[in-house]
């Protein structure tokens, strides 16, 4: 079944300030949506609404034509969300962290798969070190290894490029391209120029209102 997340007339207010209003969105298989905007413009808040974490909004969110609140469980089984925080335990190794994430997602993974996922992100040889001993960029790579390990159709990534070096950025861009090429979808926020081989929809959040371009 095709993947489709729609927002109709979405509006969100935080602390007496409207972050955005009258937002119409449609995310389908093969789409990349890039959310832009200044610091504090509501990018992370929008991602939290779209990932069904926060229910504090006005308007309608539809997943495959059904209200998101009602089909939340089904929606979440298609979603892979990587937020600002890495969701890694410093005391556990990269492999142990990934094993937990895969199990939590309900997808069994073998040790070989986890090692391969880390190798894709260029972390061969760091599998057994406590994540707390890795650098910020390496920790980000461990978090991003979930993209390889956990097979989900819809990715939501909040500032995924933070702390990555040039190699890491290229690896992530390649992952995004191939995911979208296979019919997956991506919603991401970044300040980084994005070089992927597929067209990118852009959503700009700002004082002057919401602006969607393709």
């Amino acid at each position: 079944m095709s993947l489709q997340l729609q927002a109709r007339n979405l509006a969100c207010e935080r602390d007496g300030r409207w972050l955005f209003g009258a937002l119409d969105l449609e995310i389908q298989g093969g789409d990349i949506l890039r959310v832009e905007g200044a610091n504090g413009s509501g990018k992370t808040t929008l991602l939290k609404l779209l990932s069904a974490q926060s229910l504090d909004y006005q308007g309608t969110l539809l997943w495959r034509g059904e209200p998101l609140r009602r089909v939340r469980r089904d929606f979440l089984s298609h979603l892979l969300y990587i937020g600002h925080a890495s969701a890694l335990k410093p005391a556990l190794s990269a492999l142990e962290n990934l094993a937990w994430h895969a199990a939590l997602a309900g997808q069994p993974s073998s040790e070989a798969e986890r090692v391969a996922a880390l190798a894709t992100l260029g972390l061969s040889g760091f599998e057994d070190l406590p994540v707390g001993q890795l650098s910020a960029g390496q920790q980000r790579r461990v978090a991003l290894a979930r993209l390889v390990l956990v097979r989900r159709r819809l990715w939501m990534l909040d500032e995924p490029f933070t702390a990555l070096d040039r190699d890491g950025i290229q690896t992530l861009e390649a992952l995004l391209s191939s995911h979208v090429g296979q019919g997956g979808s991506v919603v991401l926020t970044t300040h980084q120029p994005l070089r992927v081989e597929v067209p990118v929809n852009r959503l700009h959040l700002g004082e002057e209102g919401v602006d969607v371009t393709t």
Binding site: Q53, L76, L79, A87, H101, L104, A105, G106
Partner: peptide
Amino acid sequence: EQLLLAPQ
């Protein structure tokens, strides 16, 4: 956040 997003 990840716990809340788990389908379980």
